[in-house]
Design a binder for these strands. Structure first.
Length: 888
DNA sequence: ACGCTTCCTC
């Protein structure tokens, strides 16, 4: 609806419409013609026009209402003080500020601005809804005799702008002026109460409750105030008060039922919410769209897909509720959470003219299921075809897809776009941007956003921590964790002492939650940072986060990767619930530690208990375990039966494991033949890598060359293939050919990942690279290794110089061997930890033969247990031998 | 003139 259609003949300049000069037409302007313009005889208000207008407005048919207004003025009927509120409501409903100002002007011209207060009251509401709080306040200030509705209007306006303190002040002044609150006041003030901190909120809630009782706001038939009060208590966390109110109320309408359901949902009382729904249906009240969209999240929260489908069917059968944007959003969300994108899309497509929220739900569903191209495509359709303007939620949903998408190259331009849309200061968007910058390697920008953010929430912290981990800033990641624990604790104490401390609000510190722990635990695992891992475990127990399946599984994994199988098993056994991931982690743990039999036993246990069904990863874990323990027959048998007995398809990864298993045991030809049986267009990289590795162990030059040539085609930039082949040649004394491979690698511009080892001492993780001389203790480490070298020689140690790939003198080779990162880390451990304590070292590559041999001797000489985890598995060195039995 | 509902980042 354009301006001209509303006030077709008004030549009045815009500034005159503003309420700053309400009654003084500018003398220098031509006086506005009477409206409507060409009326020779005074036009009279027509009650039937106004009735139609008001009726449209009441039914929220804003376009029709305004059309009526236009037709009415065109027909020469004068708008009266009943017409303006209806027209203003319609303008507000269409969020059309310009239109509202025109109506404001017209109301001045026709002299409806002063009394009764109905017109200015509507103006206050119109300005507020159109986002112009200044003019709302100005109009209110000029009302000579504000009535109760005036007060309600301005309080509600202030609430829309989240000016809670001012809203509550307004409420107090209103009472001082002798006005009682009405249900309208209560609705607004209830909102304000939820936003001033729980302690003040609860006090005010009780006050309102009492006042309302005295003025009879909760008497029969008046549900508005009552429903608001139920919501208020629920939002303040006093769900018991809500339930008590609900139970006592005899006059429930459908909103009361819906209110109770959503209140319970907000307080995570899912089963009670279901119970209320049940009582509602039994009581003969038919659920509406609000009911369905409120209850649907129960399905995701409590894993009830079938119930969700039932609701879906109900919504199709009843009044086309499935085409309601809210219901559809909740359905889309539910299906996406169960990974059923296709069903979600069907629901989405069933709605004509979806609202922004529904687009957001579908886009976020795609994004969360990593359907990134689809998410971006839908985002573009929404903007270009549907002409909708994205909001903060849209951007927060689509941003992760932008970051992951290959098609989207200029990631940084997104930030500009976001700012242009005016959404740069939204917390959710900022969190997503921080994540984006961390992922594209611009950590400094993430830090900048983080430090400038006004209100950080727990996700802000978690995003920053995970960003640090992605960017390999592990020290900073753990620093953030301790900062969270330190400051978050203070916040929690404040929350607990809310009855004493009313100033709690706006503190931007958060306590670590399950996501925080899950983000950090894998880092503890990969660094074998057992002390830090145990600290996190302790925190989890104290905060009841160890009940979380994902946290529990991460703990099982962390202990396993730190070489503490017993603790790993204990966490597993004490978990109240386990899923397939938990089982897989433990099976993997036994496998990595060389306990193949136990891993197989666990697998059979898992199947027998029927707690969970094995999946693809389960078989990878089982095959890896068989491989490390030489259980070739057992592994092959499962490989043959996995499809028939367990319904799991063989994947290229499974082939790679089984090739590894066969190859490691020396059955190289059989392994080679197995690769030949793979689908020609499947990814054979893993399988060939396994074979090449096996050829390296068993020094098979011919098959090694075949495998390497395959791999040079598939992954020409992967350094390890060149190194392994060169290694095979070197081990057989074919130095020329070994050097040839090295040369080729250099020509290809491929660089070897430097060997790197970690050891945790005290509260720090120390990192060593090959030949490290940068570490402050470097001279002492080398001296210590030299001293050990002598003792080892006496015990019978012979350096295995075949591990050195360069064709240099034997003496030089020995020196090079000494610089291997794992030896440095072990030496560091020996020098810096108490005698007799266990040393845990992790390495990013496979341990070399010589280090393996040397560590056996070291463990005997220094009488220490040394646990070394390489990229594949564990080696527990004790008293001169290794747990792997030299089979690795 | 009002109350209940969906979508958001780790």
């Amino acid at each position: 609806m354009s301006l001209l259609q509303i006030v077709p003949s008004s030549p009045t300049p815009h500034h005159l419409l503003l309420p700053t000069q309400p009654h003084q037409p500018n003398k220098f302007q031509k006086a506005p013609r009477p409206f409507p313009a060409d009326a020779d005889e005074p036009a009279s208000p027509s009650s039937s026009w106004v009735e139609t207008l008001r009726s449209h407005s009441r039914n929220n048919c804003f376009h029709s209402a305004l059309r009526t207004y236009v037709d009415m003025t065109a027909a020469g009927a004068l708008p009266d003080h009943f017409a303006f509120p209806a027209a203003l409501k319609s303008a507000a409903g269409l969020d059309d500020l310009a239109l509202g100002r025109q109506l404001h002007a017209a109301s001045i011209k026709f002299g409806h601005i002063s009394s009764p207060a109905a017109v200015p009251n509507s103006l206050v509401t119109m300005y507020a809804k159109c986002g112009d709080i200044c003019n709302a306040l100005k109009v209110f200030d000029r009302i000579s005799e504000p009535d109760q509705v005036s007060w309600n209007s301005i309080i509600s306006a202030l609430c829309m702008f989240e000016e809670w303190e001012m809203a509550l002040d307004g409420f107090r002044i209103m009472q001082e002026h002798g006005f009682d609150e009405s249900s309208f006041t209560l609705v607004s003030v209830s909102q304000a109460c939820t936003s001033v901190g729980k302690r003040d909120g609860r006090r005010l809630a009780k006050e309102l409750h009492g006042h309302g009782l005295r003025v009879g706001l909760y008497s029969d038939g008046k549900t508005y105030a009552y429903n608001s009060l139920i919501t208020l208590y629920a939002k303040l966390g006093s769900i018991e008060d809500s339930v008590a109110l609900f139970d006592r109320f005899g006059n429930r309408d459908i909103v009361t039922w819906n209110t109770m359901i959503s209140s319970l949902m907000q307080n995570e009382r899912y089963m009670e919410a279901m119970d209320v729904l049940h009582r509602m249906v039994v009581g003969g009240i038919k659920p509406d769209g609000v009911t369905l969209s409120s209850i649907l999240p129960v399905c995701t929260q409590t894993d009830l897909l079938d119930f969700g489908k039932e609701i879906h069917a109900f919504s199709v059968r009843n009044d086309g509720l499935c085409e309601n944007s809210f219901v559809a959003s909740a359905l889309v969300d539910m299906y996406c959470n169960f990974g059923d994108i296709v069903k979600a899309r069907l629901v989405f497509d069933g709605v004509s003219g979806p609202r922004l929220g529904l687009w957001n739900a579908m886009i976020s569903g795609y994004s969360q299921n990593a359907f990134d191209e689809e998410a971006l495509e839908l985002f573009i359709v929404m903007e270009e075809a549907a002409g909708l303007c994205p909001n903060a939620t849209t951007l927060a949903s689509v941003l992760p897809s932008c970051v992951r998408s290959k098609a989207f190259s200029s990631k940084e331009s997104i930030h500009g776009y976001v700012v242009k849309k005016g959404l740069g200061s939204d917390k959710y968007v900022q969190n997503a941007l921080m994540d984006m910058y961390a992922r594209v390697g611009k950590m400094e920008v993430s830090w900048k956003i983080f430090s400038c953010m006004g209100a950080r929430d727990v996700v802000t912290w978690n995003t920053m921590i995970s960003g640090c981990i992605v960017a390999d800033q592990l020290t900073e990641a753990f620093q953030l964790l301790s900062e969270m624990q330190r400051t978050g604790k203070r916040t929690a104490e404040c929350k607990a002492a809310e009855d004493e401390c009313s100033t709690y609000e706006g503190l931007d510190y958060e306590r670590p939650n399950n996501i925080t722990l899950m983000t950090l635990l894998p880092s503890c695992a990969s660094l074998t940072a057992l002390v830090k891992g145990k600290e996190i475990h302790g925190y989890a127990i104290r905060n009841r986060l160890d009940y979380d399946i994902a946290v529990g599984s991460a703990l099982v994994d962390m202990y396993a990767k730190c070489g503490c199988l017993t603790l790993s098993r204990r966490v597993f056994e004490t978990m109240p619930k386990r899923n397939v991931i938990t089982w897989n982690v433990l099976i993997m743990a036994y496998g990595m530690n060389g306990h193949g039999e136990e891993a197989l036993k666990l697998f059979h246990d898992m199947v027998a208990r029927r707690e969970v069904r094995p999946n693809e990863v389960t078989f990878i874990a089982v095959f890896a375990a068989c491989s490390h323990s030489g259980l070739v027959n057992e592994g092959l048998e499962l490989f043959n039966r996995m499809k028939v007995d367990y319904g799991v398809e063989r994947s290229p990864d499974h082939y790679a494991c089984v090739v590894d298993m066969l190859g490691r045991s020396g059955q190289l030809v059989k392994a080679y033949q197995l690769i030949k049986t793979m689908e020609p267009d499947s990814n054979q990289t893993g399988a060939w890598s396994s074979l090449l590795g096996a050829c390296c162990i068993h020094r098979d030059v011919k098959l090694g060359e075949i495998s390497a040539n395959q791999l040079f085609e598939l992954e020409p930039n992967e350094a390890s293939h060149y190194i392994l082949l060169s290694n095979i040649f070197a081990a057989s004394g074919l130095w020329d050919r070994a050097n040839e491979v090295r040369k080729r690698m250099k020509e290809m511009g491929v660089r070897k990942e430097p060997g790197c080892s970690w050891i945790e001492v005290g509260d720090k993780v120390h990192q060593f690279t090959v030949g490290d001389s940068l570490h402050p203790q470097s001279p002492q480490l080398h001296a210590h290794l030299d001293a050990l070298w002598e003792k080892m020689r006496k015990e019978g140690y012979v350096p295995d110089t075949s591990c050195v790939l360069h064709n240099v003198d034997e003496d030089e080779k020995e020196i090079l061997l000494c610089g291997h990162s794992e030896k440095l880390a072990i030496a560091f451990g020996l020098l810096n930890t108490p005698a007799g304590s266990t040393i845990r070292v992790a390495k990013n590559l496979r341990v070399c033969n010589d280090c393996h041999e040397a560590t056996k001797f070291i463990s005997k000489i220094v009488k220490r247990e040394i646990i070394l985890r390489d990229v594949r598995r564990f080696h527990h060195f004790k008293d001169g031998s290794c747990s792997c039995g030299d089979y690795w």
